[in-house]
Amino acid sequence: MSVLNNAQKYAPKAAVQVELGHSDDRQFAILSVQDEGPGMPPEVLQRAIEPFYRAPGTRVPGNGLGLSVAAQVAQVHGGRLVLRNLEPHGLAAELWIRVQSA
């Protein structure tokens, strides 16, 4: 669960909220992880799902694969990973997965 691990690693001691819901048309299940940490600078936010990308100056252990793998898993299941900064601070990571019809 890369999106939750990232919230815990990059926003330690910050509140983290996890929700499971669905899109308005009910075609996607959405796992949302929101933290009250520092968020990401715009240039990092744009590259965060690239394999092996690590933000300049990052001191947290890791290999830069977590968000990339989450994004790829979502894509294989017809979905996507959406990252956005929250105001006044924090980050929202939403994992959208297409729901299979019976």
Rank of each mutant, 00 (worst) to 15 (best):
M1Y: 08
S2L: 02
V3F: 00
V3W: 01
L4K: 09
L4P: 06
N5W: 03
Q8S: 04
Q8T: 06
P12F: 07
A14T: 02
A14N: 04
A14D: 02
A14W: 00
A15G: 12
A15N: 12
V16K: 07
V16T: 08
E19Y: 02
E19R: 13
G21P: 05
H22G: 14
H22Q: 15
H22Y: 13
R26P: 05
R26I: 11
A29S: 13
A29Y: 04
A29R: 08
I30A: 01
I30Y: 04
L31K: 02
L31N: 03
S32R: 12
V33M: 01
E36F: 11
G37I: 02
G37S: 06
G37D: 03
P38N: 12
G39F: 07
M40Y: 10
P41H: 06
P41S: 05
P42C: 07
A48I: 12
A48M: 12
E50H: 15
E50T: 14
P51W: 05
P51E: 01
P51Q: 02
F52W: 00
R54P: 01
P56S: 06
T58C: 07
T58H: 00
T58Y: 02
V60G: 00
G62V: 06
G62E: 10
N63E: 15
N63P: 05
N63M: 14
G64E: 03
L67N: 03
L67F: 14
S68H: 15
S68I: 07
V69L: 15
A70Q: 13
A70G: 13
A70L: 13
A70V: 13
A74F: 11
Q75F: 07
Q75G: 08
Q75L: 13
H77C: 03
R80K: 15
R80L: 09
V82F: 10
L83D: 00
N85H: 11
N85Q: 09
N85I: 10
N85V: 12
N85R: 11
L86T: 02
E87W: 08
H89T: 08
H89C: 10
G90T: 03
G90M: 04
L91V: 08
A92S: 15
A92F: 07
A93D: 01
E94Q: 12
E94C: 04
L95P: 05
L95V: 09
W96S: 06
I97S: 13
R98H: 11
Q100T: 15
S101M: 01
A102F: 12
A102Y: 09
